[in-house]
């Protein structure tokens, strides 16, 4: 399967680049260290966002009572876990891109990801509000 092999090679290459500091240092010039630290804190903030989503998933799996819809609790938990993992992976990729842009004096890369994440979280919250209301009125 050449396509699968190519994807695996590409993933391995990306991960190798994340772990190799000299790769990042090979382009542009070293910026003011404060910029690098700000970029690092942004990465950490995104990582904590991912951790919060994962914690939400783990809490849903353990502390929600069984919901009227079969396996809805597990679906909520898995969706939150996968979303959190995606946020964490994207955080390090984004950090590397921003570091590169700062070193080259380019504009920071723009992304739709924050908007998509906000919409997903907002939509999920709305659905849960609906579910709570339906359960509250349906129960009595």
């Amino acid at each position: 399967m050449p396509i699968a092999k190519r994807i695996i090679d590409a993933v391995r290459e990306v991960i190798r680049r994340w772990f190799d500091p000299s790769e990042i240092k090979s382009v542009g010039s070293t910026p003011d260290y404060r910029f690098s630290l700000a970029n690092e804190r942004t990465f950490l903030a995104w990582l904590r966002t991912g951790l919060a989503l994962i914690a939400g998933g783990l809490a849903a799996a353990q502390f929600l009572p069984p919901l009227p819809l079969r396996h809805l609790r597990e679906v909520i938990a898995v969706v939150l876990l996968l979303l959190g993992g995606t946020v964490a992976i994207r955080a390090v990729d984004r950090w590397a891109r921003i570091e590169r842009a700062i070193r080259l004096g380019e504009e920071l890369p723009v992304s739709r990801f924050p908007a998509v994440l906000a919409l997903l979280v907002g939509l999920g919250a709305l659905l849960l509000v609906g579910a709570v209301l339906v359960m509250g009125f349906g129960g009595r």
Binding site: S36, I54, L81, E99
Partner: peptide, 27 residues
């Protein structure tokens, strides 16, 4: 103080790993 460290990808991959390990635990 230095940029480019293994701590960043390490903690990100650990976080993603925790999420992935939790999926079979939930299921």
């Amino acid at each position: 103080v230095r940029a480019g460290t293994r701590a960043l990808p390490s903690i990100a991959l650990s976080t993603a790993g925790l999420a992935l390990l939790s999926v079979p635990l939930v299921l």
